[in-house]
Amino acid sequence: MSESLTALVIDDDEQIRKLLRVILEQEHYRALESDCGWHGLSEIALRRPDVVLLDLGLPDMDGLIVLKRLRQWSHVPVLILSVRDGSEDKVGALDAGADDYVTKPFEATELLARLRAIQRRTPSATENAHFEAGHLTIDFSSHIVKVQGREVKLTATEYALLKTLALQAGKIVTHKQLLQEVWGPNAVEHSQYLRVYMMHLRKKIELPDDPERLLRTESGFGYRLIVPPSRY
């Protein structure tokens, strides 16, 4: 990585901040630290980091509120790093605009991979007509989807679903976001649509015996299209 990216760590635990700094600097990030929500918000405004690692349990205000305030004026990628592992917490944070969610204790390699995924600028289908992840290729201009070089016929909805996931490859897309994107705002309560279509989509694009699944389930809240490491 030639250019040096800036990462802001907002966490009240000093040890964690120090260690994250070491881990980030090993990956050539420039690390900034904040120990509370207010300071964190002003740091984001002043220093404009490229990515934010946000803890939810902050002393002055809940991390979720920090996130909501932040989202009113900034699109900076935010990764939540919290000990809270309930799916309510995760869904809440993701639907409030977080880009990903990692629970503590975390593994450094996993954390770094997620960071890379969220700070990749979301390409629009028009400017990036071709998508590739492992055995799967998508041509957005001609709507052609190929698995291991062979074309697969997808229905319009299946294609819309796959496209939504592919455009945010590597990131979690929550059920709500998917339903809203593919079926429209009135469908957000109908998670059964999603299950049925995902089931069909998997049958068409996943290899039957591949243990590394392309469409990974984030239990209770969303899906993630996995991009195999070769892409980095």
Binding site: Q15, I16, L19, I23, V83, R84, K104, P105, E107, A108
Partner: peptide
């Protein structure tokens, strides 16, 4: 439970992150 969970996992995170960093060093 949430606070117990927090108190147990935070130091564990520090240890784990520390060893991950150390492994790389």
């Amino acid at each position: 439970l949430q606070s117990v969970s927090h108190e147990l996992k935070t130091p564990l995170s520090a240890v784990q992150a520390g060893f991950d960093a150390l492994g790389k060093e």
